[in-house]
Design a protein around this nucleic acid. Structure first.
Lengths: 329, 329
DNA sequence: ATCGGTTCTCCATACGTATTCATCCGGCGC
DNA sequence: GCGCCGGATGAATACGTATGGAGAACCGAT
């Protein structure tokens, strides 16, 4: 393996000079810098990231914690996140939070990363506390965990739910159902809360047996809608906790011969690109997903640069996108 | 920061003993091991991954190179890949190969990873050569790059294309089109080649203006089908280079009022979960995507353990899944 | 010629862990 | 009581880079 010593020997300088020259330190003369650069090129030298990390105590790596990668929602966060982090000189390590075991959190705490993006926080989670105790900077993306105030890039989920409620009320719906995300996620909880508030402002109730909850995935929507259709009072409208659930519900509707939007209005949340496909043409709640991820990256990078700043929470304002899956009653 | 020295001091032993004790080295007595373990627990000690890497010259990290994360295909590779790598004690770093600049490949060659999974190889790419020159183990996943023989987990794309051709021939189609992937990918090339061969065996031609090519994404399918529908001879069947293209084409068909499968047969490739959704019910070429990714992980881990083994190429056999997007002419 | 002040380079060392080799100890056989 | 053996531990060092402070070389001014 080629080290900075080899380069130093070839260039006839010391190892520290190589280190400084290649990083553009002003204290190295132009002539020396060129000589070193030539030697480095000749040897195809690439500085060891590990050596550098040990010395600087920075790894220039960020851990990103998600649960299920195959959920179509996350790639739309991870993609922009990756690019934004790269722009700031950071690379991305992926972690799945399947089981929040001690072992798993060890892997975050072994100083192999400079910070963490929590994209799938749950309300009871101990992970944020662990990170705080270790002084490992982190930021919430999309969901929060309650508890201590911390950096976060999130959507005004309550407002989003409220917008949907108003729209459905305006369209004349009364028998309304909700297929929401898990109760221990802020996205699940707040969207439902806003929806309930919006409905009650319009004088519409949301009985508990018209509410289903589950993971933010296709199956949740598929199964829950199947159940709702089999129930005593068929809803005429369903608000889904996110687009992936809505698309699950959409497919269940099709499987049961229920026409959308004539028989059933369906509204999602997130406006992932798939929602706009002709096959679905899903009415949903829009916000800038890429911008959300980028903001999280920026917040985290700033936190790393300045650990003692006040926590900052960026709240994105959602808006309703009216497409083809809603209709008047 | 807590180091092994702190643990050593508290336990009343030397630093090397801490290192040995915590890793279960047999040469440490049971009594000492317990004492060290208690001290480590008391201090919440987590060994520094960086220090360890510098010493062992292994990082237990694998780089995964993809192009576009938001393409719905890749998550189905990355998810199982992540899990399989984790089982072998490796973590995953994500790289995007947007521009194959020198800088980008530096990031792979700085010894911050023990191996690379190339999921989006292109035929002309210099990257595999660079890796080989640096003796950095790598494996091709899904696509190959031609050139030197190397470890690879791939599907028999030619057979897959041939299966589709036979099926369409059997259904009586004559005016057939193909919307394929890029010509510089083995998946694009070989699927098209197999398709051509299969068609010609059945005495059916595939004129060049019935073939469109582009990235394996939604837009390629959408745009290409729109063009084909506007052409002089409308095809009655289209074979798409993968499911994502097929779903793009599906949506274009819907946008133009073309009924599937009555007006147009549509066949994809990969059988990603989305293909089975009722909304699409896509006839496609199936293989075990998760197993493919896992095999790539296994091949890479073995290569790392044994750098001088013969290169191994695992070829998965695809089969046609008949769903609802094909019909007899 | 001496001095002060730059400018450039090097020496020494730090970072945290793993490993090689030496050492120490007790126990055993003769 | 001597030597030997094996088990357990410690001292020294390696891994590759970055950095603080010291030193060398050079310049211009006096």
């Amino acid at each position: 393996m080629i080290t900075s010593r080899d380069v130093a020997r070839l260039a006839g300088v010391s190892q520290p000079t190589v280190s400084r020259a290649l990083r553009g330190d002003q204290r190295v003369s132009e002539a020396t810098r060129e000589r070193v650069q030539r030697a480095a090129d000749a040897l195809n030298y690439v500085p060891s990231e590990t050596g550098r990390s040990l010395s600087t105590r920075m790894t220039k790596r960020i851990g990103v914690v998600v649960t299920d990668l195959t959920n179509p929602f996350y790639p739309h966060l991870i993609g922009p996140l990756h690019d934004e982090l790269e722009q700031h000189g950071y690379r991305m390590m992926l972690f799945t939070e399947r089981s929040e075991t001690a072992v798993a959190s060890q892997r975050l705490l072994d100083r192999s990363i400079d910070g963490v993006v929590l994209a799938t926080a749950t309300v009871g989670s101990r992970l944020p506390d662990d990170l705080q105790r270790r002084e490992l900077p982190f930021v919430f993306l999309n969901r929060e965990a309650g508890g201590q105030p911390a950096d976060a890039a999130v959507v005004d989920n309550e407002l989003g739910g409220r917008l949907v409620a108003r729209q459905l009320a305006e369209l004349g719906h009364h028998d309304i159902a909700h297929i929401g995300g898990p109760a221990d996620t802020t996205t699940g909880r707040d969207r439902e809360m806003g929806f309930r508030l919006g409905l009650s402002e319009a004088g519409i109730g949301l009985p508990e047996d018209a509410v289903r909850r589950g993971p933010f995935d296709f199956d949740t929507g598929y199964r829950a809608l199947t159940e709702l259709l089999a129930g005593p009072t068929r809803p005429t409208a369903v608000f889904c906790g996110n687009d992936v659930i809505a698309i699950g519900a959409f497919n269940a509707a099709r499987a049961h011969g229920v026409r959308i939007p004539d028989d059933l209005a369906l509204i999602g949340f997130d406006d992932i690109p798939m929602a706009a496909w002709e096959a679905f043409d899903l009415t949903t709640v829009h916000y800038d997903l890429a911008e959300l991820a980028q903001e999280a990256a920026r917040l985290l990078v700033q936190r790393i640069d300045d650990p003692d700043d006040e926590p900052r929470r960026t709240l994105f304002t959602p808006e309703l996108v009216l497409r083809g899956t809603h209709a008047a009653r």
